[in-house]
Nucleic acid binder design. Structure first.
Length: 585
RNA sequence: AGGGGAGUCGCCAAGCUGGUUAAGGCACAGGGUUUUGAUCCCUGCAUGCGAAGGUUCGAAUCCUUCCUCCCCUGCCA
């Protein structure tokens, strides 16, 4: 076990910011009415008991993946570490792409990671769509302050007049429409008097801004679409850039943490909040946006488009395929939530673009799995072994610990008989140098049993080894006095041919060959065609007591989890990760 | 001269209000323990902080110039 004191507490620039904010008493007297709302509702409420508030704001338009896990763990851990709260908020402002199916899956995945957002004190499950009334009101506030206008230009015209990266844009001919006209038009938009795309509400900032996001960004668009939550109440929907700062403010979020690509958006985020605060709609302390670099992993694609393609084109068997970098996939693969947390601790949080070696991810998983999993014995590639001098019908009970480093996990008895299954790889007719397993004349220990000496083998017509013969040394049984008298270098595992059960094994490997599949002309060409290898294995009989989701280390092989497709007749095991293997290298 | 970010060991990443020999993890290389060639333990692993100048008794940390990479021209988020 590692000494936790040896590793310094993980720190990062966001924690530094929070600690400084707290030291500056920035949030000392902030209010919280118990539910999201504008300042008029928070003002009369007591001081917030949460020192900070963060939020995880997914759009319910897909399944959560490893990248989301980074954000979830960051936000929830921050809240926990600084005696704050973290909200789960669905950023559902675009009904064309969103659905309830995703809402439910996302909730499940956040909980699976071990985070809760609803308890006896607070229910912090929110939907941006529940704030549509406030957002409409906020838009009206801006219009009245002559800070927003309804633009009747076509989308094409708006695009053309936006200018380019190096040239300023041109003002819309509708930019100086009267406040009254804007109010009337916006109301008419809301009433459904116009078709999709006919007009849009825009913030009035500066068409010549060097930051393109400030060239009068659209803040409301017309979409005659049924919303998964608000139904047909609205036919106009706020844009993310306008909605997000308001969502954060209504929820009294202190630290709004997002990924780097939103950095250019921050001036607009601050603009919206300031203007609404000026109008008395919101009050300080206003939320602050902070950006970190998103997760990239070698041999993995995380773009939503590519993940959809993998599923839709059948390169994997659905979103929860154990090879998918989704959280539902991770669950089925057997990657534990605690492994994700350890992984996030190890990779840290910064603003530098980075690509993490998949090894780092896998090693974090191995570390927690090694600690958490009971051991079991399975022979994945069976070869018959016959102990020539072993009594015909004798059953030798062997005591096998469930965990070599944790005796409190107890032990079990495994039956040793004359005929056993061993791994094909554990026997060599002509062993390579330094091979210390079984070969003619060599001695090895049958793990937890006796030392045996290989006396010969049998082959089929093709010369393939089909049976290994040996003698056992009666005085060498594990755990008995003097059993160590005979020293052997090799230890091989085995299961009784008589007392064992057959199971299906699904060995998974990386889905993509190259470090960065995105570099390929077509990432699909980089797919590893051997990313899943099915086989039948023989396992010790105790395994039949396992249930779906149970995880074990199959000794000398790796970590496996019982797949949901298992039945009592046919158990199926997914390989989560192999054990490290210096010999293979 | 569009704007915004980032560059510290093979991969991450602390440090960056200037001041002991530049944390830590992963990887890698040795060694020890071990009835998993696993785990665990020990040792090694940047005279160097994108580059070049400068300020200073002293710079990864301050200044100047330069180089490289990433993001931004949706009525997506």
């Amino acid at each position: 076990m590692k000494n936790d004191n040896a590793t310094p507490p993980p720190t990062n620039f966001i924690r530094n910011i929070i600690e400084k904010n707290l030291a500056d008493n920035l949030y000392q007297h902030k209010k919280w009415s118990g539910k999201p709302g504008p300042e008029i509702e928070h003002a009369k409420a007591p001081e917030d008991t949460a020192r900070i508030r963060t939020r995880f704001p997914p759009e319910p338009n897909g399944y959560l993946h490893f990248g989301h896990a980074k954000s979830i763990i960051l936000n929830f851990n921050l809240a926990e570490d600084y005696q704050g709260r973290c909200h789960l908020r669905f950023d559902d402002t675009n009904p064309e792409k969103e659905s309830e199916e995703y809402v439910n899956s996302i909730i499940d995945s956040v909980r699976w990671l071990g985070y809760e957002f609803q308890d006896e004190k607070e229910n912090n499950l929110y939907f941006a769509s529940d704030y549509f009334d406030y957002m409409y009101e906020a838009a009206v506030v801006l219009i009245k302050a002559d800070l927003a206008y309804v633009d009747k230009q076509t989308p094409e015209e708006i695009r053309l007049n936006r200018g380019t990266l190096t040239e300023p844009g041109k003002d819309s001919p509708f930019r100086n429409q009267s406040v009254e006209d804007n109010l009337t038009l916006f109301e008419a938009m809301k009433q459904g008097k116009y078709a999709d795309g006919e007009m849009v509400l825009r913030a009035k900032i500066n068409m010549a801004s060097p930051n393109i996001n400030l060239r009068d960004p659209a803040i409301y668009r017309i979409r005659h679409v049924t919303h998964h939550n608000s139904g047909d109440k609205w036919c106009i929907y706020p844009m993310y850039t306008f909605a997000h700062p308001i969502e954060d403010a209504l929820e009294k979020i202190t630290h709004s943490i997002c990924t780097l690509e939103f950095e250019d958006q921050r001036p607009f985020y601050d603009w919206v909040l300031k203007k609404l605060a000026d109008a008395g709609f919101l009050a300080k302390p206003l939320p602050k946006q902070h950006e970190f670099s998103r997760l990239n992993l070698t041999h993995v694609v995380l773009s939503k488009r590519k993940l959809i393609q993998l599923v839709d084109e059948g390169h994997v068997h659905g979103w929860d395929d154990p090879r998918m970098p989704t959280l539902v996939g991770a669950k089925r693969r057997g990657y534990p939530p605690s492994g994700f947390k350890l992984f996030m601790d190890r990779i840290g949080v910064s603003k530098a673009d980075s690509v993490i070696d998949y090894q780092v991810f896998e090693d974090a998983m191995r570390e927690v799995l090694n600690h958490e999993c009971d051991r079991r014995i399975a022979v994945l590639n069976p070869l018959k072994l016959v102990i020539h001098n072993f009594p015909e019908n004798h059953i030798e009970l062997c005591e096998v610990p469930n965990h070599p480093q944790d005796s409190e996990r107890g032990s079990r008895q495994v039956k040793l008989t004359k005929e056993l299954w061993i791994e094909k790889e554990d026997f060599e007719v002509n062993p390579p140098p330094k091979f210390f397993r079984l070969f003619p004349g060599n001695q090895v220990r049958l793990r937890y049993g006796f030392v045996i000496e290989c006396t010969g083998y049998e082959t089929d017509d093709q010369g393939k080894v089909i049976k290994v013969l040996c003698d056992y040394l009666p005085d060498t049984k594990s755990g008995t006095p003097g059993s160590d008298a005979v020293k052997v270098k090799g230890n091989i595992h085995w299961v009784s041919a008589q007392f064992s059960t057959s199971v299906v094994i699904r060995n998974y490997d990386r889905l993509f060959h190259s470090d960065n599949p995105n570099d390929a002309e077509n990432f699909l060409d980089d797919i590893n065609q051997n990313s899943i290898q099915m086989s039948e294995a023989v396992c010790e009989e105790h395994i039949t007591q396992a249930s779906i989701g149970d995880q074990f280390q199959f000794e000398r092989h790796g970590y496996y989890i019982v797949d949901p497709e298992s039945s009592t007749e046919q158990m199926i095991f997914n390989r989560t990760a192999t054990l490290r293997d210096i010999w293979q290298k």
